[in-house]
Design a protein around this nucleic acid. Structure first.
Length: 193
DNA sequence: AGCACGATGCTCT
DNA sequence: GAGCATCGTGCTT
């Protein structure tokens, strides 16, 4: 067990988003250890980022983002979905990395049962698979006692990483809408070539 | 394989 | 009252 320390999350958000690829997201649920390797992330950086939930300043919803790094920011959206972020940078600066996809590696059968077909590619799909809801908002990702944490994984080489615009920011103005702040691991089967 | 759309309810103005 | 950091379905190429 090699839990990522708070200093890791205190780094610039783009660095954290890139370095989280390949890391192991672990969830202790009903005494069972569920885990997946992170394969897609997005960075949301400060009140100046018009795609960030903190664009209009601090509210009750986004308060965790203003706190110290290494905590879980879990928000509710579209009337039915929960999404998981890791808070980054110094306390007082609202920034976080949205975890958009994982590849299940532990508790695969349980994950498959919680998610039809075991599909965990999608920010609301992985939270459903791991049983993450508003209850987990504000949990310390650096403390396994919280039941939700991230461990160091296999480093992912630059050749396997793609960057692009963040997903779903339909009404966000440029340049924020198009900044390449999304990071994803190219699937093994598509690497041939 | 890709696009369009409806579901559904919390959060903030 | 408007606006979502989405997902599943159903229909079109």
């Amino acid at each position: 067990m090699n839990v990522l320390p708070r200093e890791f999350y205190a780094q610039p958000t783009l660095t954290v988003a890139r370095q989280l690829l390949g890391a192991r997201l672990v969830r202790l649920l009903d005494g069972q250890r569920l885990a997946g390797l992170i394969t897609e992330t997005e960075a949301y950086i400060g009140e100046e980022d018009q795609g960030c939930h903190a664009r209009s300043g601090r509210t009750r919803r986004n308060a965790v983002m203003y706190g110290p790094p290494g905590y879980a920011y879990v928000y509710f959206t579209y009337g039915m979905h929960w999404c998981l972020n890791a808070v980054t940078e110094a306390e007082g600066r609202p920034a976080a990395v949205l975890i958009r996809a994982i590849e299940p590696v532990e508790g695969v059968e349980i994950i498959a049962a919680r998610r039809r077909g075991g599909d965990t590619r999608g920010p609301a799909k992985l939270t459903q698979a791991l049983g993450i809801t508003g209850t987990e908002n504000g949990l310390d990702l650096c403390d396994p006692a919280s039941g939700l944490w991230i461990e160091a994984g296999e480093p992912v080489a630059d050749e396997r990483v793609r960057r692009g615009p963040r997903i779903g920011l339909y009404t966000v103005p440029e340049p924020w809408k198009s900044l390449p702040w999304r990071f994803l691991v190219v699937p093994e089967e598509k690497m041939i070539k």
